[in-house]
Computed example of a mutant assay.
Amino acid sequence: MTAFPRTPVLFLLLAIAAGLAASPARAQSAVADGQKLAFDRGKGNCLTCHVIKGGDLPGTIGPELKDIKSKYPDRSELVAIIFDETKRNPQTMMPPFGRNRILTEQEISAIVDFLQTL
């Protein structure tokens, strides 16, 4: 009688399958976290300068944040803008959220997840 082999490959495949099953829930959580950060007046504070659907008391200094995925199909460009827009536009009023450590890379990623739903 042969026993079913317990190889690392089997465990890897099971872990991948479990991760794929949980991905939609994790994605929704990231979007919710990103919206919370974007609307948080003490953290992301995007509403100070931008109109964002669903946000209260938006500013008008920056562009309205809508149709983001079509404007920035390359996710890395949007991450770079939030991290440090002064590299692309030295005259910007947008704070360099990543460079100044206002937001972590994980927080920036969550905000991008949210913005790509707009």
Score class of each variant (00 low, 15 high):
residue 1 M to W: 13
residue 1 M to T: 14
residue 2 T to Q: 12
residue 2 T to E: 15
residue 3 A to Y: 13
residue 5 P to R: 15
residue 6 R to W: 00
residue 6 R to T: 09
residue 7 T to N: 09
residue 7 T to V: 11
residue 10 L to E: 09
residue 14 L to Q: 08
residue 14 L to H: 00
residue 17 A to S: 11
residue 19 G to M: 03
residue 19 G to S: 11
residue 22 A to G: 08
residue 22 A to L: 00
residue 22 A to E: 04
residue 31 V to R: 12
residue 34 G to D: 06
residue 34 G to V: 02
residue 36 K to N: 10
residue 37 L to K: 05
residue 37 L to C: 06
residue 37 L to M: 06
residue 39 F to R: 08
residue 39 F to W: 02
residue 39 F to V: 03
residue 40 D to F: 09
residue 40 D to G: 11
residue 40 D to R: 11
residue 42 G to Q: 02
residue 42 G to T: 08
residue 42 G to H: 02
residue 42 G to D: 04
residue 43 K to P: 01
residue 43 K to Q: 08
residue 44 G to Q: 01
residue 44 G to L: 07
residue 45 N to W: 01
residue 47 L to G: 05
residue 51 V to L: 07
residue 53 K to S: 01
residue 53 K to A: 00
residue 55 G to M: 08
residue 55 G to C: 10
residue 56 D to R: 04
residue 56 D to A: 10
residue 56 D to K: 11
residue 57 L to Y: 07
residue 57 L to R: 13
residue 58 P to I: 00
residue 58 P to Y: 00
residue 60 T to Y: 03
residue 62 G to T: 05
residue 62 G to D: 01
residue 64 E to I: 06
residue 66 K to F: 09
residue 66 K to Y: 07
residue 69 K to G: 04
residue 69 K to H: 06
residue 69 K to E: 07
residue 73 P to H: 07
residue 73 P to E: 06
residue 73 P to R: 07
residue 74 D to L: 15
residue 74 D to S: 12
residue 75 R to A: 10
residue 76 S to Q: 15
residue 80 A to M: 00
residue 81 I to N: 01
residue 81 I to M: 02
residue 82 I to G: 01
residue 83 F to D: 08
residue 83 F to E: 05
residue 84 D to T: 04
residue 86 T to Q: 10
residue 87 K to T: 10
residue 88 R to A: 13
residue 89 N to D: 14
residue 90 P to F: 15
residue 90 P to S: 14
residue 91 Q to N: 15
residue 92 T to F: 00
residue 93 M to P: 10
residue 94 M to W: 01
residue 95 P to W: 03
residue 95 P to D: 04
residue 96 P to R: 14
residue 97 F to G: 04
residue 99 R to V: 12
residue 99 R to H: 12
residue 102 I to K: 12
residue 103 L to M: 10
residue 105 E to G: 14
residue 106 Q to K: 14
residue 106 Q to W: 03
residue 108 I to A: 08
residue 109 S to C: 02
residue 109 S to L: 08
residue 109 S to W: 00
residue 110 A to R: 04
residue 111 I to F: 02
residue 111 I to N: 01
residue 114 F to T: 09
residue 116 Q to G: 05
residue 116 Q to T: 10
